[in-house]
Design a protein around this nucleic acid. Sequence first.
DNA 1: ATCATGGCAAAATG
DNA 2: ACATTTTGCCATGA
Length: 260
Amino acid sequence: MDMFVIQRQNKHSCTGDALRRSPRKRIKLLEDGRMMEEEDEEDAASAEFSHPVPWHKIEAEGLDCDYALLFPKQEADQLLKQLEEEIVYSTGEEATVQLFGKLYNIPRKQATYGDAGVTYTYSGVKRSACPWTPTLNFIRDAVTETTGQTFNFVLVNRYKDGQDHMGEHRDDEKELDPLCPIASVSLGAARDFVFRHRDTRGKQSLRQIEPVKLELAHGSLLLMNPPTNTLWYHGLPVRKKVLLPRINLTFRRIVLDSKK
DNA sequence: ATCATGGCAAAATG
DNA sequence: ACATTTTGCCATGA
């Protein structure tokens, strides 16, 4: 049985000054189903002294991640429910991949949202992102407030159960800002998540570096800091015992292509 | 022994 | 020029 070890953040070296306290806000659900944010009274007064997010630092050779619970369960439940109503996933050709001459359905559902004018390339086709939905916008703001990073794009992956998965890969598209961390928000069923160093893959790997495995919880935020994303692959393996859906949001910064 | 899981190979595309 | 993508098959282990 594999161990899923996460080191406790050293409180004296709070990762960074980039990382901030948890947004002390609550989601208020209006009668008509809309949401609004509500500041915690105590926040303004004791901002400097409020509890920092209990970040966990995850480190290995060339790997640098920060993990924290961003949303408490009740909020996370609410956000998941809203996303299940809002998100429109790709269908048809956009939901398939061709390899070895055959067409396969991608073993998950995908959608992309972002700022107006942001385009991304997926399997050779340039597309523009859908405009932010209220819930995505809310979550993006929460991530920005907590990390100090801004994002103009999000890839939504929905795994209907433990059969849905994603093979090991890197998010190293050229259009991504290589200096910007990728922020991964998880909602729904907890899933195992595996990092593997690029030099340990394949037949006779030149190096022996242990994979880094963790479980991504409901309401969690995983920050993948450079150069993690170039040196390490990550994947979401099949877990047949998982029966409930998970939605993952990976917030990125896409470099606006200079207009021609 | 059954089942879940991990590792690997299959080639067309950009 | 070279990395990528998923399924399926097989070995391993609980």
